[in-house]
């Protein structure tokens, strides 16, 4: 069809009824400290969108242990407790057992969940604690500026594997989701990413499903999110998302690892 050179007088469409997307009200209106392009802030945003859409802002308690996201409670407008490094799943156990009909979640990095907190996470999973663990896997210790994490890939350079991670010396990258998936107490394990629009949409759905499984009391839910760390990887945000796609995701494939059968 021929290009209509319609001289369009652009009507001001910036009006409430034309609104398609806005920042969730459950995200506090402050600057987030995360580096430009960091997946943490994306996950904060979409998780708070889910909390807003499910209308559970007053019925959810979060636990933010040490890591880049220790300041999550400055951004998420929900009741939260800050936990010692690695102890989020124990703190969350204490909360959920006392308030069984509230939603509880932890928001942990790879070092917190799989290194220092490995035992707490493993046993919370084995007890089938009915809360959600949001696990940001960016293969490095972000806050402390770039050390090797349990999920650092073989050959990956970090400040504590300057010549690349050598499994003979530093062990292999740990797939925690697969490790706990077989445990009967574990209801839902999925691995997602937020390095492109489609993945962000899928991650948001996964987070929502996990909270719904929690509502049904199905047990431990782990949503692992493969993410970027532009600053410590010394890449631009776009390069880091490319690295996630081409290097991390091949080793940490996306998709559901364990899904509870839920009678519709």
């Amino acid at each position: 069809m021929a290009e209509e050179n319609v001289d369009v007088l652009v009507e001001n469409i910036v009006t409430p009824e034309n609104l398609v997307y806005r920042k969730p009200t459950t995200l506090l209106d402050v600057d987030m400290h995360y580096c430009p392009g960091c997946g943490h802030s994306t996950v904060h945003k979409i998780f708070m969108e889910v909390v807003e859409e499910m209308g559970i802002q007053n019925d959810i308690i979060g636990v933010a242990p040490v890591g880049c996201a220790v300041f999550a409670y400055n951004y998420m407008d929900v009741d939260m407790q800050q936990a010692a490094h690695g102890r989020a799943c124990a703190v969350a156990t204490g909360i959920k057992r006392m308030l069984p009909d509230k939603y509880v979640f932890t928001y942990q990095g790879d070092g917190d969940l799989a290194a220092i907190g490995g035992n707490e996470t493993l046993h919370a999973a084995n007890r089938g604690e009915n809360f959600l663990v949001i696990f940001i896997n960016n293969a490095v210790y972000g806050m402390t500026s770039g050390q090797m994490a349990p999920t650092t890939l073989e050959g990956m350079v970090t400040t504590t594997s300057p010549y690349g991670r050598d499994p003979k010396v530093m062990g292999y990258p740990l797939k925690f989701g697969e490790l706990i998936a077989p445990l009967p107490g574990v209801a839902y394990v999925t691995r997602q990413a937020v390095n492109n629009v489609q993945n962000v949409r899928r991650t948001k759905k996964a987070l929502q499903r996990a909270l719904e499984y929690q509502k049904m009391g199905l047990g431990f839910c782990l949503v692992e999110i493969v993410s970027n760390c532009p600053s410590n990887w010394k890449m631009t945000p776009l390069e880091s998302n490319k690295y996630v796609q081409e290097v991390l995701i091949p080793y940490y494939p996306l998709g559901d690892i364990k899904v509870p059968e839920v009678k519709k």
Binding site: A84, A90, V91, A92, T93, G94, I95, M98
Partner: peptide, 10 residues
């Protein structure tokens, strides 16, 4: 270690 952190939560 876990026990005292469960207490923190509760």
């Amino acid at each position: 270690v876990a026990a005292i952190n469960m207490i923190y939560g509760a």
